[in-house]
């Protein structure tokens, strides 16, 4: 318990951590301020116009669907030259669309929460992932490097307990910072939308989707922190984690991708970690496999495939657990100088 207290204090007293939080607040402030400055509350007239436009658009879609159905039934309909109708009319059915146009889509110069929350959240998650990774790496890296770990082990000669407490403290702190930061962030933009913009149609589905991205984003932040911590522990240095990631990106995600292309390996994206990160965050990602249709000479060929979040989570968890287990195994036996 005392050890945890000491580690929380050590972590929060780190200047790097403080700097990263200041930077986060700075970026946050600038985004909020520019959003606030560039947005106004829509007037009743603007809202009505936007609403009309949305309704008109939906009407247009319904009309097109009706025509398609008419053609299917062999009824005559007024032909529009150049109008394309798909063979399957359900593609046009407004009731089956993912999303129908809403008034918010036709407001200009208005910050609309439902439209902007998702990209804003992605931006925050990206920052927090970086934060988690760098803080995780430098927390243990600087401590190993400055002899702090040795000093601590003279007091608590249980290596696994000490390292485990450090990892736990790190994850707890990063999670707390992430939750607080993302809540403050979303609430701020929600308030901006209320006072100087337009909240948009916030229904249960919207909140559920936003909540899912939030939860998956925070998980990714924790995984990044654990990975930074594990690599820096193995390399005894903060720079080891940065170097390992840079090397991975250059050698595999760039170099390896080119080699895989030359070798015409099927579905190279499946071998890239970035694909899994994307799939986990977005829920699913579609990839196009250029080799799939090479042998198909005629007819229709769909070379695309999807990665969903479930296998992505498994891959990311296995990677993190593997790195962490190696770090602990190595640290348990290693000579500390």
């Amino acid at each position: 318990m005392n050890l945890i207290r000491a580690e929380v204090e050590r972590l929060s007293a780190r200047r790097f951590v403080q700097l990263m939080i200041v930077l986060l607040m700075l970026a946050f402030g600038v985004t909020a301020a520019t959003t606030l400055a560039g947005s106004h509350q829509p007037t009743a007239v603007e809202l009505a116009a936007a609403q009309r436009q949305a309704t008109a658009n939906i009407r247009g879609m319904e009309l097109e669907h009706a025509r398609c159905l008419a053609r299917e039934r062999g009824e005559p309909f007024r032909d529009d030259p150049g109008l394309y109708l798909p063979s399957d009319c359900s593609e046009l059915d407004p009731a089956l669309q993912d999303r129908l146009p809403v008034a918010a889509d036709y407001l200009t110069g208005v910050f609309t929460f439902t439209r902007q929350a998702e990209p804003l959240l992605y931006f925050l998650v990206a920052y927090l992932v970086l934060f988690g990774f760098l803080v995780g790496a430098s927390y243990i890296g600087a401590d190993l490097n400055s002899g702090g770990v040795v000093n601590l082990l003279l007091w608590r000669p249980r290596r696994l307990t000490v390292l485990g407490t450090k990892l736990g403290t790190l994850l707890g702190t990063v999670l707390t910072v992430s939750v607080l930061a993302s809540l403050a962030y979303l609430v701020t933009f929600w308030v901006i939308a209320q006072i100087a913009g337009y909240p948009g149609p916030t229904n249960a589905a919207f909140w559920a989707e936003l909540g899912a991205i939030w939860g998956r984003g925070l998980t990714l932040v924790l995984l990044a922190a654990a990975i930074g911590f594990a690599i820096a522990t193995m390399g005894r240095h903060t720079a080891a984690a940065l170097g390992a990631v840079a090397a991975y990106l250059v050698v595999w995600e760039l170099g390896g991708r080119i080699v895989l292309q030359i070798l015409e390996v099927a579905r190279p994206d499946q071998l890239m970690l970035a694909s899994y990160v994307g799939a986990w965050l977005a829920g699913e990602v579609r990839f196009w496999d250029s080799t799939a249709c090479r042998t198909v000479t005629s007819g229709y060929c769909d070379g695309s495939y999807t990665l969903t979040w479930q296998p992505a989570l498994v891959v990311l968890l296995l990677l993190t657990a593997g790195l962490a287990a190696s770090a602990f195994a190595l640290f348990r036996r290693r000579d500390l100088l």
């Binding site: 207290r5 000491a6 204090e9 007293a13 400055s146 002899g147 702090g148 000093n151 601590l152 007091w155």
Partner: peptide, 21 residues
């Protein structure tokens, strides 16, 4: 022995005292 340079002497010892009860 090496110490983390950015901490004060007081904090360095305080953290050890906390950790060691």
């Amino acid at each position: 022995p090496q110490f983390y340079g950015n901490f004060t002497g007081y904090r360095t010892l305080r953290l050890l005292a906390l950790a060691g009860g």
